[in-house]
Simulated scan of single mutants.
Amino acid sequence: MQTTGIFKAALFDLDGTLIDSLAAVQRSWTLLAQRNQLDVDTVFSVIHGRPARESLALLMPEKTSAEIDKEMSWLEDLEANDTQGTIVLPGSVEFLETLNAHQVPWAIVTSGTLPVAMARIQASGIPKPACVITANDITQGKPHPEPYLLGAERLGVAIEDCMVFEDAPAGIESGRAAGGQLMAILSHYSQDVLQVEHAVTTIDKLTLLEHEAGDAQAKRWTLTY
């Protein structure tokens, strides 16, 4: 096993990192594309890792802010009520329960809105986090560093002492820009894309990780793979 980092807290993206909500995401965004006469492939090339409203603005630049708000409200309601097929990814529950057992602080930092995030957390059955950062808490979404900086601030841990778990390029760039340590989950993107373009440690799933109690007095943890 190779040591990948020593950290005091963990910051997790949600979709594609802890849970698999791809089926629900595909249904919702396909309906939105049809509703607005958008190319479905273009839609899915834009949305992963970004707040939904930012994606809508990118996909429909001709629409006014009020029109984007209307589409956002429609989409949020749809996604918060359609969690069919949302499942936990291998190792997520065990890893989060181990963090809780050792009193290691952790938070979810997602580009989704609060209603959507909480619906998917409940549907997947992962442990409920004490801290959730959503699109409702920030002014600039991933790949901007604000989401992960806010996550670290809410946990009361310096960002450089946080391990950031991500699956998408936009989220990885957000974690890097914030100054966190990075671990990428290969759920949506290939190892070549994430390693070559973003130069991060990659794993297939959280069950490949081992954890050791590092410096108990300093509350640091060692993560290996």
Rank of each mutant, 00 (worst) to 15 (best):
E210W: 08
T64V: 12
A178S: 10
L58T: 08
L182N: 10
S45A: 14
N36L: 12
S174Y: 02
A177N: 14
L75N: 11
L22K: 15
P61N: 13
L209E: 07
C162K: 00
R27Q: 10
I108Y: 08
A123R: 08
I121V: 09
E54M: 04
Q195W: 12
I159T: 01
A10I: 01
P90H: 12
N36H: 12
L209F: 05
L223H: 04
L149Q: 12
E153K: 13
T98L: 11
L38I: 11
P143N: 09
D77S: 10
R220W: 03
T134Q: 01
Q34V: 04
Q195M: 14
G141Q: 03
I108T: 09
D20Y: 02
K142S: 04
D39L: 06
I121C: 05
E54K: 10
M118R: 14
A107V: 03
D192I: 07
H198R: 04
C162G: 03
K142I: 01
D204W: 03
Y148A: 08
H211C: 11
H144C: 05
L114V: 08
A177T: 10
G214V: 02
H48K: 09
T30W: 11
S92F: 00
F165E: 01
A101K: 10
E97S: 14
H48R: 08
E153V: 00
R120C: 06
P90E: 14
G171L: 11
A213H: 04
A23E: 14
D161G: 05
E94A: 15
P127A: 11
A33H: 02
P145W: 05
D41A: 15
L194T: 08
F12D: 01
E210Q: 13
P127H: 10
L209W: 03
E160I: 02
Y189I: 06
D39C: 12
L22R: 15
A24W: 01
A177H: 11
E173Q: 13
S111Q: 04
A184S: 12
A10Y: 00
G112I: 04
L78V: 05
R220V: 07
A57D: 10
Q103G: 08
V40W: 03
L206H: 07
T17L: 08
Q140E: 12
S55Q: 06
A52Y: 00
H48T: 05
G171I: 01
P143A: 08
S111P: 04
M72P: 03
D137S: 04
D161N: 12
V157K: 05
A178R: 01
E67L: 15
L208D: 15
T139V: 11
W74N: 13
K70V: 08
Q103P: 02
Q34I: 03
L208T: 15
D204Q: 12
E62K: 10
E197I: 07
L58R: 09
A107M: 05
T222L: 13
S187V: 07
P169G: 13
T64E: 03
D77H: 13
V46W: 01
V40F: 01
A130R: 09
A80L: 06
